[in-house]
Amino acid sequence: MNIEKFEMLYEGKAKKIFKYNDEEVIIYFKDDVTAFNGIKKDSISGKGKINKKITTFFFELVEKEGIPTQFVKDLDENSFIAKKVEIIPLEVIVRNYTAGSFCKRYGVEKGIKLENPIVEFSLKDDSLGDPMICENVILSLNLVEKDVLEKLKEYALKINEILSKFLTEKNIILVDYKLEFGKYNDKILLADEISPDTCRFWDKDTMDSLDKDVYREEKGDLIDKYTEFLRRIDI
């Protein structure tokens, strides 16, 4: 389908959002890949359709377990139709192992399994570099109500249980990941994507990355690793 005939509502680093009708949008996954808040950027053919396929798979998986999502139905290789949500201006980060910015922030080595999952928040604002933000500041700035904040944490930890269980069976470690949520008719829905762009996945035996760290750290071919992840989860 030629989605360019639809009105584009928003373009981000990795996706475009088009108006489908008054209640729904088209989410189109681009081949663009970025790192370090857009400082490093390339276009890698085939990346978009892989991330779209993984996202729809995981959205359907968590939906079956009681997590409401914005996903409606597939459209084509790079796109799906989704409920039009008002994005909550927070990124919800769940960490099961130490990695990335967490190690730099606290001076700890990579790969330590955390005793309990950690839920963190960052302010969704590219111009500020998506800074970390604590719950007290979130509430003081009235970014969301307290009950919404609690629901975000509840959903994030439930998603963590679902994905960790599934991936463990595939010999994959769910290291950490970022989630976004939106409001739809006063209901909170999981939005955006769950993919190797927004998660860290490690092979359980080798601890090799199956995610965007391959691109960030120039550790191999990104498409090869994303394709391997697809194969490992049997989709």
Rank of each mutant, 00 (worst) to 15 (best):
G182T: 01
V33K: 08
K104Y: 10
V108Y: 01
L157H: 03
D147F: 07
I67S: 02
A14G: 14
L143K: 13
L149P: 02
Y106R: 12
K225F: 07
K110C: 12
D74M: 13
W202Q: 01
G111Q: 01
E217D: 15
V94F: 02
D42K: 13
Y226F: 14
T55Q: 04
G48R: 07
E24F: 10
Y20F: 13
G100Q: 05
P131R: 00
K178P: 00
D31F: 01
E63H: 14
F201H: 00
R95P: 06
S164P: 14
F102T: 09
K30R: 12
I26Y: 02
E60S: 14
A82C: 07
I118H: 00
D125C: 07
F71A: 04
L152Y: 12
A191N: 07
L75C: 02
V72Y: 05
K104W: 06
K40H: 05
D192K: 02
E11W: 08
N136Y: 12
D203N: 14
K52M: 09
K104M: 10
V94C: 04
F229M: 10
D208R: 15
M207H: 15
V175T: 09
K110Q: 12
L143G: 11
C103P: 13
I223P: 00
D42C: 06
K64Y: 02
K40I: 13
E7P: 02
T98M: 08
V94M: 06
L143A: 03
A82T: 00
T168F: 15
L157D: 03
K19Q: 13
L174T: 15
K64S: 08
R95Y: 03
I194F: 07
M207A: 14
K73G: 01
K158R: 14
F36M: 04
I133Y: 03
K83P: 00
G111D: 09
F80K: 03
D197A: 13
I27G: 09
Y184W: 10
L230G: 07
K40G: 06
V214I: 15
I27H: 04
S101C: 05
D197W: 13
K47F: 09
Q70L: 13
F6N: 03
G100D: 03
